[in-house]
C-alpha cells in the first residue's frame, strides 16, 4: 500500500515538474512578413489591427452604438481573413463562419449573439498565440547574433560572438589568476587584453543602439570612468581596485546585456535557425 502511495506521489511530482516548453515550428511563409524578407513587421501590424478592431466591436456593442460596432466588425472580418491569405497553413484554423455570424449579429443588433461569436473568435486567437507566439517572438523579435562577426582588437582576426566572449572572459579570469599567483606582468597583459576586447564590443552594440541615450546604457560616461580606473588598477596590480571596477562592469554591462539578450539568443540558437 505504502509503495502504491509513493508511486502515486512520484507520478504527481514527475508530472508537475515535467513541464517542458515546446517551441513549435512556424510556417515558413510567416517569415515573408518579417525582416529581413519584409521591410516591415507586417504580420505584427495585422495582429495590432485585429486587436484594435475586436476592442472596437466589443466597446461599441456595450455602449449600444451599433453603427460603429458594425464598422469595426467589418474591419475585423476583413483583417481576420487576411491571416489565412498570408499563412495558408493557418487558414483552416480560422473561424470564418463565426466571423460571418458576428457581422450578421451586429447588423441585427443581437447583443447576446454578437458576444458569443466574439468569444468564439477570441478563442481562435488565444489558441494560435498559445501555440506560436513564443516561437514567433524568439524567431522574429530578437537580434540575430549567429552571423555576427567581431574584429578582435588583440589578434586582429574576425571572431564569432561566442569566441569573442570566450576570449574576453578568459582574459578577465586569467588576470585574476595571475594576480593571485603573484605574476604581475602576465596579469597586466591579460588585463589590458580584457579592456581592449571590452571596448571592442562597441563595434557590435552600436549597430543597433545608435543614439546617445542608447550608448549611455551600454557604454556611457560611468562605464568609461570605470574602464579608466580598471586600466590604472591593472597597471599598478591592485587586486582590490580591480575587483571593485570589475564588479561594477559585470553588474552594469555584462549582466544588463546578458539579461536582455542572452536568454533569447540561446533559445534562438536552438530553434530560430529553422
Amino acid at each position: 500500500m505504502r509503495l502504491f502511495v509513493l508511486f502515486i506521489l512520484m507520478s504527481i511530482f514527475s508530472v508537475s515538474y515535467g513541464k517542458n516548453i515546446k517551441l513549435r515550428d512556424l510556417p515558413k511563409e510567416l517569415s515573408n512578413y518579417y525582416p529581413p524578407k519584409s521591410e516591415k513587421m507586417e504580420f505584427v501590424e495585422l495582429m495590432h489591427t485585429l486587436s484594435v478592431s475586436i476592442t472596437g466591436v466589443v466597446s461599441n456593442i456595450k455602449e449600444g452604438d451599433w453603427q460603429n460596432a458594425e464598422k469595426w466588425a467589418k474591419r475585423l472580418q476583413e483583417n481576420y481573413l487576411k491571416i489565412g491569405k498570408m499563412v495558408k497553413k493557418w487558414d483552416k484554423l480560422l473561424k470564418k463562419e463565426d466571423m460571418e455570424k458576428l457581422v450578421n449579429a451586429v447588423k441585427s443588433k443581437d447583443k447576446a449573439g454578437s458576444m458569443e461569436f466574439v468569444q468564439n473568435i477570441s478563442k481562435s486567437c488565444v489558441q494560435c498565440h498559445k501555440n506560436y507566439q513564443l516561437s514567433a517572438k524568439i524567431k522574429f523579435h530578437s537580434p540575430n547574433f549567429n552571423k555576427t562577426q567581431i574584429e578582435d582588437p588583440v589578434s586582429g582576426l574576425e571572431y564569432s560572438i561566442e569566441d569573442y566572449m570566450k576570449a574576453m572572459t578568459n582574459d578577465m579570469k586569467m588576470m585574476r589568476i595571475h594576480l593571485i599567483d603573484g605574476q604581475k606582468n602576465k596579469a597586466r597583459k591579460s588585463g589590458f587584453n580584457f579592456i581592449k576586447r571590452f571596448e571592442g564590443m562597441t563595434q557590435m552594440c552600436k549597430d543597433c543602439h545608435t543614439t546617445k541615450k542608447d550608448e549611455e546604457i551600454y557604454f556611457g560616461i560611468e562605464a568609461n570612468k570605470r574602464i579608466t580606473a580598471l586600466r590604472e588598477a591593472v597597471a599598478n596590480g591592485e587586486l582590490i581596485q580591480i575587483k571593485k571596477q570589475l564588479k561594477w562592469i559585470s553588474q552594469n554591462n555584462c549582466s544588463k546585456c546578458h539579461n536582455v539578450h542572452q536568454t533569447l539568443y540561446l533559445l534562438k540558437e536552438r530553434f530560430g535557425s529553422k
Binding site: P153, V154, G156, E199, G200, T202, F219
Partner: peptide, 9 residues
C-alpha cells in the same frame, strides 16, 4: 602590441 581604434574610442 596592437591597438584598434573605432569612432567610439
Amino acid at each position: 602590441e596592437r591597438f584598434m581604434l573605432t569612432p567610439k574610442n
